[in-house]
Design a protein around this nucleic acid. Structure first.
Length: 465
RNA sequence: GGUCCCAUCGUCUAGCGGUUAGGACGCUGCCCUCUCACGGCGGUAACAGGGGUUCGAAUCCCCUUGGGACUACCA
């Protein structure tokens, strides 16, 4: 594998047709990792040649997702670069120029066939049980219309060689027979290029060294290779990445089967580093039993020959576990900073010292940051008062003189357990519910210590008559 | 239908001719324990099937089966 081909320049080329889901960002991440691994460049290119499917704001979402994940492109629509513009709709003259070149060489030819006629042909092929291939009607003498009439430019699949193939960096040798290929459209009637054409021209002009893309592109790679050949350009190294499947079925991950956008995961409080490590494990591993990787580790170890051939399902439970693990390992100061946007609104009335004391208690219980309000609410606001209990006066009497250190709290409450001749589970559970409104919360002594004398006693009294 | 790709526990995966088929998530038993978590120690669970090649196949080849992608003037 010529992974040392320098300089390494890779691109992620999404079309702005909706949210960038986790499968898409996985491709972006692999490209980014390969670029970083080789001290190369990661390029973002917007493939907006389908005017009908454009979604407003989608491009900005794509940029934002990259930034939020920490995989900002080196070159792209936002940062610019020496091979711009990086938005295909702004490169129309370039495509037109190269289309003309192929038109003159005979690799491309005009076709005036209507969608209706083509549909008919497809139906016939369907009925006959054969693959549809354009019948080259417009190539036959006498069938040409005026240049001014709406037409597309088709690529003429050559008769030789018999087959075309490439050494895929993850799949190995792949060959396709030219006879099975259709004269695909390179330039549409609206003068926009199709993916195939724009993609090849841009990859060449932008000096892309490796194309890492989802394997749904595998069947169209021969077309791209043929285009490179027609231009007499050297194609990049291709590496087709395994699909990311939705949790539900064996289908390709897509918006409709619950695939969430990157932004949604971030909004739920999944950490960028967790997402990076998890996403990297979808279709890649370094051959060891290590489960979680720091980003520098990922960069250092990411190689194409360790990329999986078979598809991977997106297992959110595993992501959640990884996220919780990373939260637990996080220094408290950092956790505080990253929690700010998730803490309940009342938290803003408390100082950093108090917030850290609270976070220290919930840190090991946190799986993702948006759980924070639910987990910490009672540290900032009194819960609804519970049913009064006969032990309450004695509890208050025992706690009133306490200095509220954890040790003192424990001593007094254990003594009270003996005094009342009851089990810790019963007494502590009662106090916990009275003070926090919960049956499940951090350790009682720690909780009361953080809450302090005033708050604790006030809440206990609220439960009395 | 046609072309192509893929195939180890439910899931992510290790394995690249000789292993009691390993790790992790999940589920689960025990321990810790004031609840919930965390943590520790166990358990559950896989080479899709059939032919070859070989002294020996999860590993190599073929077939079958299953899954998937593509088959647009979408990417």
């Amino acid at each position: 594998m010529s992974s040392t081909k320098t300089p390494v320049r890779v691109r992620f080329a999404p079309s702005p047709t909706g949210h960038l889901h986790v499968g898409g960002i996985r491709s972006a991440l692999f490209n980014w990792l390969w670029a970083r691994h080789n001290d190369g460049k990661f390029i973002l290119r917007l493939e907006d040649t389908d005017r009908k499917r454009l979604v407003e704001g989608a491009a900005d979402q794509i940029y934002a997702s990259h930034d939020a994940l920490g995989i900002t492109p080196d070159e792209g629509p936002v940062q610019g670069g020496p091979y711009g513009p990086y938005i295909q709709s702004e490169r129309l003259e370039i495509y037109a120029r190269y289309a003309t070149q192929l038109l003159e060489s005979g690799a491309l030819y005009p076709c005036w066939c209507t969608p209706e006629r083509l549909d008919g042909l497809r139906q016939e092929a369907q009925k006959a049980g054969t693959a549809f291939k354009y019948d080259r009607y417009c190539l036959k003498p006498g069938n040409q219309l005026a240049e001014a009439e709406p037409h597309v430019l088709r690529f003429r699949i050559p008769e030789v060689p018999e087959s075309i193939g490439w050494d895929d960096a993850v799949r190995g040798r792949l060959d396709f027979k030219l006879a099975d290929l259709d004269d695909f459209v390179a330039i549409k009637a609206d003068n926009f290029p199709t993916y195939h054409f724009a993609n090849v021209v841009d990859d060449h002009l932008m000096k892309i060294s490796h194309v890492l893309r989802a394997d749904e592109w595998l069947p169209s790679t021969p077309k791209h290779l043929l285009l490179f050949q027609a231009f007499d350009w050297e194609p990049p190294t291709y590496a087709h990445l395994p699909a990311v499947l939705g949790p539900g079925g064996g289908k390709k991950l897509s918006k409709r089967d619950g695939a969430q956008s990157v932004q949604e995961y971030l909004d739920e409080g999944y950490l960028p580093e967790a997402l990076r490590s998890f996403l990297a494990s979808l279709g890649w591993n370094d051959g060891t039993t290590q489960e979680v990787y720091t980003t520098p580790e990922l960069i250092g170890r990411f190689t194409l020959d360790r990329v999986q051939k078979s598809p991977a399902k997106f297992d959110k439970e595993r992501l959640t576990w990884m996220n919780g693990l990373l939260i637990r390992q996080m220094p408290l100061d950092e956790l505080l900073e990253r929690s700010r946007a998730f803490l309940p609104p009342e938290a803003k009335h408390y100082d950093a010292q108090y917030l850290k004391a609270v976070l220290r208690l919930v840190q090991e219980r946190l799986k993702f940051l948006s759980e924070l309000p639910e987990l910490t609410e009672f540290f900032f606001a009194d819960p609804a008062s519970a049913e009064p209990h006969e032990w309450l006066p004695q509890i208050i009497a025992a706690l009133e003189p306490s200095d509220f250190t954890e040790a003192d709290l424990e001593t007094r409450l254990r003594a009270l357990t003996t005094e009342l001749d009851t089990k810790p589970g019963l007494l502590f559970g009662l106090i916990r519910h009275a003070v926090t409104g919960r049956t499940a919360a951090p350790g009682l002594f720690e909780t009361l210590h953080v809450l302090g004398h005033g708050t604790t006693l006030r809440r206990l009294r609220n439960n009395q008559f």
